[in-house]
């Protein structure tokens, strides 16, 4: 029962964040890239004040997977870096905390481009 409730929360929070982004896109005609940057900034602010952690505890992957979670872990990483390693930790902590995801995206994309070509869009 508890597990089902958890998944409902994940679905609701993840879905809601995406629906808000969609709504902003429809109403203001902002391009996808700008929406991503906007949500990233929101995430960094929420992460900087350590507020997003509560949402993550409540909704798990529903809060970590959206780009807001990425922004918050960048900010949190920088704070943790500053606490443990001082000034250089503050500079590099954000990247360090998210480095695995970024590295996998870049590395795998680089690898995969040798094996595939872009497909024609049918519609």
């Amino acid at each position: 029962m508890e597990a089902i409730l958890m998944y409902l929360k994940v679905f609701a929070v993840g879905g809601l964040i995406c629906a808000i982004a969609e709504l902003i896109m429809i109403k203001t005609k902002i391009t996808p890239a700008r929406i991503l940057v906007l949500f990233l900034m929101i995430g960094a602010v929420l992460g900087g004040f350590n507020l997003w952690t509560y949402v993550i505890q409540w909704a798990g992957a529903g809060a970590t997977l959206p780009i807001i979670g990425f922004g918050s872990s960048l900010a949190k990483g920088a704070i943790e870096g500053a606490t443990s390693n001082g000034f250089f930790g503050a500079l590099g902590g954000g990247l360090a905390a998210t480095s695995a995801g970024i590295a996998v995206s870049i590395g795998l994309s680089y690898l995969i481009c040798f094996f595939t070509n872009s497909h024609t869009k049918k519609n």
């Binding site: 872009s118 497909h119 024609t120």
Partner: peptide, 20 residues
């Protein structure tokens, strides 16, 4: 040509976006 124009004026073909 659709694909040539798309990559010059818009996004890569495999990029997931919705058309207005």
């Amino acid at each position: 040509h659709f694909s040539a124009a798309e990559r010059q004026y818009r996004y890569p073909l495999e990029f997931g976006n919705q058309r207005q």
